[in-house]
Structures are given as C-alpha cells and as structure tokens.
Amino acid sequence: MHRVTLLSLASLIAPLALAAQRPPTPPPAAQPTAPHDSVRGAIRAVDARARTLEVTTGVGYALRVVRLQVPASVPITDRKGGSQGAPIKLAELKPGDVIRAAFGGRATGFVAYTIERVGRMESTP
C-alpha cells in the first residue's frame, strides 16, 4: 500500500517536473517559427510599398516562383562581390539580383526571416 502511494505521487510529480524543465512556450502567433525552407534564386519582382518579393528558382527546367512577404524587421544584407553584409533596404533590391532567403510559412503566405543579396545574374557577376 505504501509502495502504491509513492508510485502514484511520483507519477503526479514527474510530468510537472518535466514541464518545469521546458522553456516557456510563447503564443503561436508571436513566435517566429524556425526557417522551414530557404531559397536561392533571381529576384523577379520587388514591391517595396507592399513589402513583397518574388524569387524565381528551381531545379533544371522545373522552375517555380516563391512569393515572400518582407516585414520591416527582416534583416536584408548585401554580400554581393564579397561585401561584408552591409544592411540594405528592400527598395535597393532589383530584378536580376541573386538572393538567398530564409523563410517560413504563415497563414498569409511565406514570410522572409533573412535576405542576403549574394550577386547578380550577369555573364560576369
């Protein structure tokens, strides 16, 4: 009887202890989900006012366009031509720029987490 009581007590405490070890979970809407995908491709269109970006990418002839929302807080950096990653504005990105972007899915579509300009689609980039 005594053993049963101890086991029951342990089974009640264990989940509480485990939960106490986990970091607190922020509300889902506020959490920037981990990058579930990344893309490297050529910018097709930039709308600085709507803060959106279209990137053409793909494998061989199987091409697709990824549309990204770019919140104002998203870091955009320039590594073109070996630059050290100086911050640039969304409006400075141009069609034909080659970028690398990390992004995640939201109910409203894909949202960029980071954007790096790494080059330009030119014969001599």
Binding site: R40, G41, A42, G58, V98, G119, R120, M121, S123
Partner: peptide, 9 residues
C-alpha cells in the same frame, strides 16, 4: 561567346 547563368548565378 559568352556564358549563360542559372537563376542563382
């Protein structure tokens, strides 16, 4: 002659 480039350069 000049090279072509893929979408990622």
């Amino acid at each position: 002659g000049r090279p072509n480039r893929f979408l990622d350069g």
